[in-house]
């Protein structure tokens, strides 16, 4: 009996714990996106200016079109003007670059700030400025600097003709640089905040044991902030197909196809021209992307818990 009550209490506890995220999911995903999900099974009928259900064998037509678009981009509806293949490649690329460049840099700068080295607070403010100032203002300032000022300075300095950083061959690199630079301050703030919560006694104990600063960083600080790192990695994966890499701010709807990301691709299709007739395919595409992103997110979550240095 006692065991039964205990099981019941466990159930209550379990349900109360699961209910909140479930309710959150139902309210803020299913309910909010319901119309968008249903649209994936409809088609826009221009003659009545409304969406009509795809019936019978045509129910999954939008999904078929999306799958066909993946295999042969020329089968994208004629007003879909940005390549899906490039968008996928770039979305994955910025994730990977985020992991291998932005994250280590953010950890290093955060550690610098955490250790209160020379100019740490100034660095914190400077790095966080792009988060405070509106992205449109940042991009408006960044463009002429990289288009004219820096090339002219480099030309003067090296005596050779340095072309704009928005010339075709450098353009994508410039977007990547801006993406990493502009999004880096926020993580520095969070990482350094988390590092500040590490107990001084742990650090002092390490120092008594003779750890070098590098060992302190790699073997004490990073493992201690692992849950934050893991959160960033998992959230980053979930964000993979919505991240626009600031392309809309830079170019509005006129970014070259090969520089696009999936997030930009979707947003562009939503705002360009008369987008209403595209909604059903975009909805179907959104669902397909969820199907792709979900296992990746779960895999990342599993991976980050598996390699948790605090547990190993």
């Amino acid at each position: 009996m006692k065991k039964g009550i205990k099981n019941k209490m466990q159930w209550v506890f379990y349900v109360s714990m699961v209910a909140i995220p479930l309710l959150h999911f139902i309210l803020f995903y299913v309910y909010v996106n319901l119309n968008s999900i249903l649209l994936a099974f409809k088609t826009y009928d221009a003659s009545i200016s409304d969406f009509v259900w795809n019936k019978g064998g045509e129910m999954f037509d939008n999904f078929k079109t999306v799958i066909k678009m993946f295999s042969d981009p020329s089968y994208a509806p004629t007003d879909f003007s940005v390549a899906m293949g490039n968008s996928f490649r770039n979305s994955v690329l910025i994730q990977v670059l985020g992991w291998v460049i932005r994250s280590p840099l953010a950890w290093a700068f955060s550690w610098y700030v955490y250790k209160q080295k020379f100019g740490a607070n100034a660095f914190r403010v400077i790095l966080y400025l792009p988060q405070i100032i509106s992205s449109v203002t940042m991009v408006t300032m960044f463009v002429p600097v990289m288009d004219l000022v820096v090339p002219n300075m480099l030309s003067e300095l090296f005596g050779t003709d340095v072309t704009s950083f928005f010339s075709y061959e450098k353009e994508f690199g410039t977007y990547l640089f801006y993406y990493i630079w502009a999004s880096f301050g926020g993580s520095v703030l969070i990482y350094s905040g988390t590092m500040s919560s590490i107990s001084d006694s742990i650090i002092e104990a390490g120092q008594v044991d003779g750890v070098t600063p590098i060992q302190e960083f790699l073997k004490i600080v990073l493992p201690m902030i692992w849950p934050t790192i893991a959160t960033f990695l998992v959230v980053g994966c979930a964000d993979m197909f919505t991240d626009q890499m600031n392309l809309f701010t830079f170019n509005r709807t006129d970014t070259e196809a090969e520089f696009s990301t999936v997030g930009y691709f979707l947003y562009r299709q939503m705002v360009q021209g008369n987008p209403t007739s595209r909604f059903p395919i975009l909805s179907a595409m959104g669902l397909c992307l969820t199907v792709i992103a979900m296992p990746v997110v779960l895999l990342m979550r599993w991976f980050t818990s598996k390699v948790n240095p605090m547990e190993n």
Binding site: S74, T78, D79, S81, A83, E256, A257, G273, S277
Partner: peptide, 27 residues
């Protein structure tokens, strides 16, 4: 009825090479 697909403005599919997935001829 197919104006978005057949219109021949400067930023339309009229000038979009499917092979190169672009209507930006300059690039």
């Amino acid at each position: 009825d197919h104006q978005s697909a057949l219109g021949f403005g400067v930023d339309t599919n009229f000038w979009k090479s499917q092979t190169h997935n672009s209507y930006l001829m300059i690039t």
